[in-house]
Design a protein around this nucleic acid. Structure first.
Lengths: 182, 182
DNA sequence: GGAGACATGTAATGCGTTACATGATTTG
DNA sequence: CAAATCATGTAACGCATTACATGTCTCC
């Protein structure tokens, strides 16, 4: 987990698409990108400065309104090279999910422990919300075939996430039902 | 990620089942527990000492062979209380997957980029291996109905993980096929 | 004019990895 | 008797969160 500095490549990837401020990047993590990555602004701003020192990105200042300074960052060719290299690197070992539903469930031994039902009903709510959000985004972003082709990776990961949530929800509801009938 | 100290509860949960050495705990992370949690020994040993200082666990020394000292840790009632409290706490927000396949895929825009095929074939191998392992474990541990009942949480999380890998693999193979036919 | 969003920073702390370090035991 | 595994530790470092801190702009 530590020592990979994945945020670096997430930022480079986002900046390859558009010039962005730190604040813009932060906001992107609250949309479907949040399904696979998140970082706080307190980590993003220093990382942007570091990338600029490494000459992978540059910045330009813009004034918005009377005096609000916004710093837009732009990717440089060395940044694109670094991103491309990372994209071609072999994948790591699969990481543990570290998901707290699974974690807690593992430590409850008895079928009739009331806490299992509580865990399931909480988990169903969490995932229902996520499923609804992702489905809505799919509709907004990729109802046209053209958009699917133009951001193919994004389209695929969204499809993947929706399938995951759908399968998961179905399983959760099935098990929850059979827990109640016992 | 930081600031939760989940390892603490993982250790308490494991120690509630059996007395264990730090080395035993490390080894458990290489079996199906590794699907949802992993820590290095360099984090486990200090954490065990910390838990002992907090009076949640105690230890006893055993000599194995001539002079090899093994420290077994045992959970105390305060430890069980802490574990139970954690099990009843509401679940956190769903965390981002931070999975590098998804991450990389997101940043590849064009359907015909060769790197998409490479990513998929690597990912299929990773997940096939995992699926095979989990399925084997299911057979070893839970072929008897009795074992399913006695470690019900463990049984459920294994079932869940196998379903996840199975669904994922099916999707990966489908997409991979349609990528090649283009 | 106030609430809420926009916008950018730093400091303290802790989780987690990598690397360094040592010795005992088992197995072939 | 050597290699692999068992067994336990510490140190350095970096990723990540929480909290502290400040000021601007937009919209009602």
């Amino acid at each position: 987990m530590a020592k990979k500095n994945t945020l670096k490549y997430v930022i480079l990837g986002l900046l390859r698409q558009h010039d962005l401020t730190g604040y813009d990047i932060k906001k992107l993590f609250s949309c479907e990108i949040g399904d696979f990555w998140n970082s706080k602004h307190s980590q993003i701003y220093p990382e942007l400065k570091k990338l600029e020192e490494e000459h992978l990105i540059t910045s330009r200042m813009e004034i918005s309104g009377k005096k609000l300074e916004k710093t837009y960052y732009m990717i440089k060719s060395a940044g694109i090279d670094a991103l491309d290299k990372w994209l071609s690197d072999p994948l790591d070992e699969i990481q543990p999910t570290r998901d707290d539903f699974t974690l807690k469930l593992y430590f409850i031994d008895h079928r009739h422990d009331q806490r299992i039902k509580n865990l399931f009903s909480e988990e169903i709510l969490r995932h229902q919300k996520k499923f609804d959000y992702l489905s809505a985004r799919m509709g907004e972003l990729f109802s046209s075939r053209e958009n699917q082709e133009q951001n193919f990776g994004h389209y695929l990961i969204l499809k993947k996430a929706i399938l995951r949530e759908n399968t998961q929800l179905k399983w959760l509801k099935d098990e929850y039902r059979s827990l109640k009938n016992n």
